[in-house]
Amino acid sequence: MKFTLRAATGVLAAAALAAVFAPPASAAAFDIVYDCQANTPLGAQYLTLNQAVDATAPATVAPGGALDVVVDPGPNQVPSQAAGYNVKEVRSFSLKVPVPSNATLSGVELTGGSGLGPTPPQWSAAGGIVTVTFEGPIAGGATFELPTVTAHLTAGTSGTIASTLYGTSYSDAGLSFTAVVSTFLGNVSAPTSCFPNPNPVLTSTTIG
């Protein structure tokens, strides 16, 4: 996760579909950009972060057919400094991904990943949204890799299954975490809310 800071103080991102009994999947690479706001005692601070992911999807799926939504993020790194302050760690991650229209969710698998802290990532689903969480911490300057996420779907009767990310604003965030930085005030915890900007269509599969 590359943090490109626009001010002081300064991760999953993407989904792909692969049918169980479908034509071979095609692959696409994305560099997802999240627009973030960190709330600190010094006021709101702004940053962007990037996460590279590869996305794959079958071109078609039969009505009622089984699909797998696969997330394959690339390695990334937490910055060691932000606006002249040392980044001690980032923790308490939460990433939301909507279940695509014209499909239902039957389960999620999280595999792989490294450098994410002692507690394995977990997932939950409610209201048509899958949420992946892990506590961390990830130290400033450390490298890490988010887990591969496979969401099992069942196609509807017709239409298109298009996968995207969740979030439209800081108050309707799709990604959140807490950054801890060293400042002249001591260690400052900065709850941070992010949304994908832009929010691309990652994959598109036609039912039929």
Rank of each mutant, 00 (worst) to 15 (best):
T164F: 02
H152M: 03
L49D: 10
G156V: 11
S182C: 00
S176T: 15
S101T: 15
G10M: 12
T111K: 13
A190H: 03
V181P: 04
T56H: 02
D35I: 02
G113N: 13
Q51Y: 08
P120S: 02
R91Q: 02
V20A: 09
V97D: 01
Q77S: 11
G107Y: 02
N50S: 13
L116I: 10
V87T: 07
K88P: 01
A126S: 12
H152A: 07
T48H: 14
S189V: 10
F30S: 02
C194S: 05
P100S: 07
P24T: 03
Q77P: 03
S189K: 11
N102E: 12
T164C: 04
P75C: 01
S124H: 02
A22G: 15
T119G: 06
T164L: 03
A57P: 07
P147S: 06
V181G: 04
A151H: 11
L17M: 01
T157N: 15
F3Y: 14
H152P: 01
N197C: 02
A103L: 10
S124I: 02
A57W: 12
G112V: 09
A82I: 04
S193C: 00
T203D: 01
V188E: 02
A7K: 15
S26P: 06
V33S: 10
F134D: 05
T119M: 07
S189P: 00
V132K: 00
L146I: 08
K2T: 15
L42E: 10
V90T: 09
G159N: 05
F184K: 13
L165E: 04
A29C: 10
I32V: 15
S101E: 13
T104V: 14
V70D: 06
Y34F: 14
A18T: 06
A103D: 11
A52D: 10
F21Q: 14
D35V: 04
A44S: 09
A19S: 11
G140M: 10
F93S: 04
G127F: 11
V61E: 09
N86P: 01
T131Y: 08
Q77T: 11
S106H: 14
Y34C: 10
V149H: 02
V61C: 06
T178N: 10
